[in-house]
């Protein structure tokens, strides 16, 4: 039996991801064991470098919980995020890292169940994929 428990870094927009997390906690929903949550005021605050640095410094997968498109409190934040995630994925391809290791997931404030389900599925997916060989632990 493999003992590999993938580390997931989850950036949570304070307008959507964070309230969804709070709801998941209130409902005592399941969460992956190896999870690091990073609250951000808006998903547009996340720079490409943060995504890469998370992978470099130990994450097997990175997830960004952001507001639905056209629902950003700061208008363009999640649009900018989309471009930056796209750029990070291009760099990951050059390094030879699988695209599944980085994903945006759109949630609303009351999406506690979706929040938990997505993370549990992501952990399963990463377990199958194996460790991120580029991380410098």
């Amino acid at each position: 039996m493999s003992t590999f428990e993938p580390k997931i870094v989850a950036f949570c927009c304070e307008q959507s991801g964070l309230p969804a997390l709070e709801m998941a906690k209130t409902l005592k929903l399941k969460m992956p064991d190896n999870l690091e949550l990073v609250p951000v005021p808006c998903s547009g605050r996340i720079e490409t470098l943060y995504l890469l640095k998370a992978l470099e410094s130990g994450a097997d997968g990175v997830v960004v919980f952001a507001c639905y498109e056209e629902n950003c409190q700061y208008l363009q934040g999640n649009v900018r995020l989309k471009s930056r995630v796209g750029y990070a994925k291009q760099i990951m391809t050059k390094i030879g890292l699988e695209g599944e290791r980085l994903e945006i997931f759109h949630v609303a404030t009351n999406s506690g169940v979706k929040f938990s389900e997505f993370l549990m599925q992501k952990a399963d997916q990463l377990r199958l994929l194996g460790p991120n060989l580029g991380k410098i632990a």
Partner: peptide, 21 residues
């Protein structure tokens, strides 16, 4: 500074991946 940091991060990971940090 930003693009340099991105490139450095990518190079570190690419080299780590092939076992030549």
């Amino acid at each position: 500074e930003k693009e340099g940091a991105l490139l450095a991060s990518a190079l570190r990971m690419a080299r780590q991946k092939i076992g030549k940090p």
